[in-house]
Simulated scan of single mutants.
Amino acid sequence: MMRAVSWILVVAVGIGIGALVWSFAPRTLPLSPSAPLTLSLMIPPQPPPTMRVGVLHTGLMRSRGLFAYRGGDAGERVFGMDVVIVEHPQGTLLFDAGFGRRLHEHLRTIPWLMRLLSAVELQAPVVDQLVDASIAPASIDGVVLTHAHWDHVSGLDDLPGVPVWINQAELDFIRSGHPATRLARELGERDYRIYAFDGPPYWGFDASHDVFGDGSVVLVPAGGHTPGSTIAFIHAPDGRSYALIGDLAWQREGVDLPAERPWLLRKLVDGDDARVREVLVRLHLLQRAMPQLVIVPAHDRRVMQRLPPARHDEALHRGHPA
């Protein structure tokens, strides 16, 4: 009897290990979104000629491609920890906050398995890079969070008083006590500016929020990775367009193929697997329909390097976003 039980346990463990290994195998998502992709409802953006888009590289995480998407290779991948800055006549916004000066204290909020699977390096805190780019931190009108995980809020620690733009679903997620938003809570109560998705459908997404009223920066709801995950569409005056998708995919292959994260990583970081899959398919189809659109995962340094570096011009007239 004991021998039979032992064999059953061995078989069960073997099946479990096999299933885990299989979850890393290549597998693309079927291209069948629950609603049709509609592009005709978009009003052509009218970004002002003085608007600028740039990127700040605050840090990196060295990991493996196989952890980023199903079918990824075992070679080392650089996961960038970057901040996009938009300087607009109505105001200057950061998209996510990158790494802060107290990064090594912030790392203790990461699950031990995430620490085990990657090596984090601080390049330069976001506040120091702003100063180096001749941008006064106090002049920032807001930090727009794609979501509230630790590596997107760390830099808020060095930006006291700067408003944090967030939707109600993500703010509720922070205040829920969920372990993934521990650092956001430990950094203390912020000046949260709640925006609503009060605009029409936009490029296949159900609703939108036009930040400046000219179509240059449009936010859309893309819950799944977290309840209030947000995509920011940014249209620069030089004709280039970007979609900042946060962590819906960690590397561009997640959209290009499209492919989700392996099961173990999904369970660590994603709140709603099905919703993430749906959004990845929508982004894949959007990329097919709009090849000039650069889809930018928050941690794909290869894509982030396609954005120009941040810079500043004192002649840029400042105001406040609507």
Rank of each mutant, 00 (worst) to 15 (best):
I245K: 10
R108E: 10
D256W: 06
L130E: 02
P47Q: 03
P26F: 08
R306N: 08
P49H: 05
W250A: 04
P89N: 05
Q287T: 08
D96E: 11
Q90L: 15
T109W: 01
H106S: 12
V220L: 14
W250R: 07
L116S: 12
V86M: 01
T50L: 05
D214H: 02
H225K: 10
L107I: 09
F233M: 03
R311P: 00
D82A: 10
M114Q: 14
R193P: 07
A315H: 04
H57T: 05
F95A: 01
G224Q: 05
D158W: 11
R27H: 13
A259P: 01
T181E: 07
Q168K: 08
R301K: 04
L293T: 03
F205H: 13
W250I: 02
I295R: 11
V255H: 07
V127E: 11
P308Q: 00
F197I: 06
G239D: 07
V211F: 07
V10P: 14
V218P: 15
V126M: 07
I295A: 04
I194H: 14
Q287N: 10
H149I: 08
S176W: 08
G16D: 10
L244F: 00
P227N: 00
I140L: 12
A232P: 03
G319A: 09
L159F: 09
F212T: 10
P30K: 00
L122V: 09
A4G: 14
P30N: 05
V296Y: 01
D214R: 00
V11S: 14
V269H: 06
H299Q: 14
G254Y: 02
L293E: 01
G239V: 00
I295V: 13
P179F: 12
I194D: 12
H57V: 04
H178L: 09
F173T: 04
L116I: 11
A232C: 00
D270G: 09
R3A: 14
E314R: 13
S176P: 15
P45M: 07
A133F: 13
I17Y: 06
V53N: 06
G71K: 11
L20R: 12
G100R: 06
T109Y: 09
L66G: 02
P179G: 06
M51V: 01
R27F: 07
P221Y: 05
L283H: 10
E189R: 15
I295W: 06
S23E: 03
V13P: 08
S34Y: 12
D247G: 08
D73H: 13
P309A: 01
H284F: 09
H152K: 08
V11H: 08
P125F: 09
D256T: 15
Q292A: 12
Y69S: 08
I110E: 15
I140E: 00
A35G: 10
V153M: 00
V5F: 15
S6E: 06
G100N: 11
D172S: 06
L285R: 12
H320A: 15
W22K: 12
H57N: 05
G161A: 05
P137F: 06
I8P: 00
F212H: 10
M304G: 00
L103I: 14
